[in-house]
Amino acid sequence: MSSTFLLGAANGVQWGDTIFYLVLFIVLMALLKHFAWGPVSEMMEKRADKISDDLDSAESARKKAEDLAAQRQSALKDSHFEASKIIERAKKNGEQQKATIVSDAQEKAQTLKVNAKEDISRERQDALDSVKNDVAELSIEIASKIIRKDLNANDQKALIDSYIEGLGKQNEAK
């Protein structure tokens, strides 16, 4: 070491080296800036920007998705509500319909029953009326038969004739 630094001073410092290194370093720095440092650090900056942009856009996309999910959730809830409302309405309608049908049926049955009763009573009346007639005739017949019990043949014949005549008359009357 003694050589360069201490003896070097005795020989005269090679101060040209300082100039040489200054120039060398500045030229090297300029060249590196143009060919290596500049483009690379620019690209690194661009990448950093892109990453931060991507992060931002990812954030906004996430927010949008969350909003959409919330919207869908609320829509789903609404639709649940609506569906239950529809079902309720349908149930009510059904209930009402059932009630009207049943009451209609009851009414109809009632009228039918009333009609039937009326029919029955009328029939019975008719039947009674006709039975009354028949009884009257039968009693008459029986009476006439009892009266003509001990008649002779001629009388019998006359009786039969009258009877037949009576029948004919009766038929005619009918």
Binding site: G12, V13, Q14, W15, G16, D17, F20, Y21, L24, F25, V27, L28, L31, L32, F35, A36, W37, P39, V40, M43, K46, R47, K50
Partner: peptide, 30 residues
Amino acid sequence: PFNLSNDIPGLITAVIVFFLLFWLSRSIQL
């Protein structure tokens, strides 16, 4: 006065540095 035994390796170093970094920084991509 220039001490060439100091300047020549300096120059060589600078050349190596330049070409090394030049080579490393080709085809810069994202």
